[in-house]
């Protein structure tokens, strides 16, 4: 194949965008991903077969204090036990990656799968998996309260988190009235450099629907 000038111009433009942002995810020339459509499994009662990963997650609905960083968090030498995936949990690779905060944030990939569409008044199961890219302490995954959204579970909190380990949570989310069509998820974790946070958006639609929406957006 021979590079012609047009391609170079287009390429340069794309690279200009690539270079643009410190944090803004630049456009890529790749086509949209087409992850396997998640099975439309019936929603199981939240938390029924997914025990709190470290036994340290508070009971559902418990009022939680704000994440509060410790100045010198201990190095996470002994990671918290990781729950073994169950048959009800989707494979990590099939879960979509939630959009992360653009600026410097917590080094955690948040993956999700929504089993079906969030119809009004009908609970839908949301699978979350927080996968740290580095080890850290006090990994916390919590949903932002929003009018019109009822969530079954409280926050997930892991005292010592290992890199590349998925920390899963399964939620039952019921949307009513004018509830938003997405979840806002806050993830915080402490590293030796300090505490970091990141807000993520999880659309409340099945993978198929979300994929279609994203494809349109990318065009």
């Amino acid at each position: 194949m021979t590079t012609n000038n047009l391609r170079l111009v287009i390429g340069a433009s794309l690279l200009c965008l690539l270079m643009a942002a410190c944090d803004k995810a630049p456009p890529q020339p790749e086509p949209a991903a087409a992850p396997p459509a998640p099975a439309d499994t019936p929603a199981a009662p939240a938390g029924q077969d997914v025990p709190a990963p470290s036994g340290e997650a508070p009971p559902a609905g418990a009022a939680e204090p704000a994440p509060s960083p410790a100045p010198e968090p201990p190095p996470p030498t002994e990671p918290s036990p990781v729950p073994k995936p169950t048959a009800m949990e989707p494979p990590l690779d099939s879960m979509r990656v939630a959009m992360a905060s653009a600026k410097i944030s917590v080094p955690v990939d948040l993956r999700y799968q929504v089993d079906g569409d969030a119809m009004q008044g009908k609970p839908v199961t949301v699978h979350l998996a927080a996968v740290p890219r580095v080890a850290g302490a006090r990994l916390r995954v919590e949903l932002k309260h929003a009018p019109g959204l009822q969530v079954s579970e409280g926050p997930l909190e892991i005292q010592k988190a290992s890199a590349a380990t998925p920390y899963r949570q399964r939620l039952s989310v019921t949307r009513s009235g004018a509830g938003p069509d997405h979840l806002r998820v806050l993830v915080t974790m402490e590293m030796t450099e300090g505490m970091a946070f990141g807000y993520y958006t999880v659309p409340l639609a099945s993978g198929i629907t979300a994929q279609k929406q994203e494809s349109v957006k990318q065009r």
């Binding site: 690539l18 270079m19 942002a21 410190c22 944030s105 080094p107 890219r133 580095v134 590293m191 970091a196």
Partner: peptide
């Protein structure tokens, strides 16, 4: 920090490809 990116891009050279990045990455 963002203004620093503006300065780097205009007066130096920013080969930075962007994307999400977290503390400790």
């Amino acid at each position: 920090h963002e203004f620093g990116h503006y300065i780097e891009a205009n007066y130096s050279r920013a080969d930075n490809i962007g994307g999400s990045h977290g503390l400790g990455d």
